[in-house]
């Protein structure tokens, strides 16, 4: 085993213990106002910040070719993951299911849930189909995307997901769940796992009500 950089390890543990402070400052910060999405028309030219301008070609778990722009017109909850990950990734999917469950009926009906793999080699469309079944996801609402390395790098960069293949088939990555408005513009996001989903759900319900 490689000798580990003590700086990154030893003190961090101490820090986390300290993080248990009597007063929870972040709770207040999380009362962030729900961003009132001013949704632009979902036809015509895409807004300048729309990630649907990315031109990458994708394949779904049903082996259908797809461009991101085809999601235009409804809110999308999107995250990146890889199928061989046994820790964080199932949790991310569980977090997204919590969002699905907490969404208003209107949002529940219209929202798409999208999972983009970091690992096109292992997570083939067929393998992604198996994941859909394994996690008992509604294929109408949930889309898994398989793409080439460049397209994955692009979409990660605009979602501010950092990732790195740290060994064959194993990826280190930031865990982000992002809400896109019907034009593919990032509205809000949840950073980390098992975090409260309420702020994102509130924003989603708002968008779904508007669209």
């Amino acid at each position: 085993m490689r000798s580990l950089l003590p700086l990154t390890l030893v003190f961090l543990l101490g820090c986390q213990a300290d993080a248990v402070t009597p007063i929870q400052e972040p709770v207040v910060a999380q009362k962030a106002p729900v961003q009132v999405a001013i949704v632009e028309p979902t036809t015509g030219e895409l807004p300048g910040k729309s990630i649907y301008q990315l031109d990458g070609s994708w394949t779904t778990q049903d082996n259908k070719p797809l461009k991101l722009e085809s999601f235009r017109g409804q809110p999308v909850v999107v995250a990146m993951f890889f199928g061989s990950c046994r820790t964080a990734c199932p949790t991310i999917i569980a977090d997204m299911k919590r969002i699905e469950k907490a969404a208003s009926p209107e949002a529940h009906k219209n929202t798409k849930f999208v999972l983009i793999t970091f690992d096109p080699k292992v997570d083939t469309p067929d393998a992604l189909k198996e994941l859909e079944n394994k996690f008992k996801l509604d294929g109408q609402r949930w889309t898994f995307l398989h793409g080439d390395a460049g397209s994955i790098r692009e979409v990660a960069s605009v979602l501010n997901v950092q990732y790195r293949e740290v060994s064959e088939g194993q990826f280190s990555h930031t865990n982000l769940i992002t809400l896109l408005d019907p034009n593919g513009v990032v509205t809000t996001k949840i950073e980390g796992l098992k975090m409260p989903v309420e702020p994102l759900v509130a924003a989603l319900n708002k968008i779904a009500g508007d669209s």
Binding site: C85, Q170, F171, S172
Partner: peptide, 13 residues
């Protein structure tokens, strides 16, 4: 540690 929730577990650099 809390970082685990931000980065995929077991992925240390």
């Amino acid at each position: 540690d809390k970082q685990e929730s931000k980065f995929c577990g077991g992925a240390a650099l």
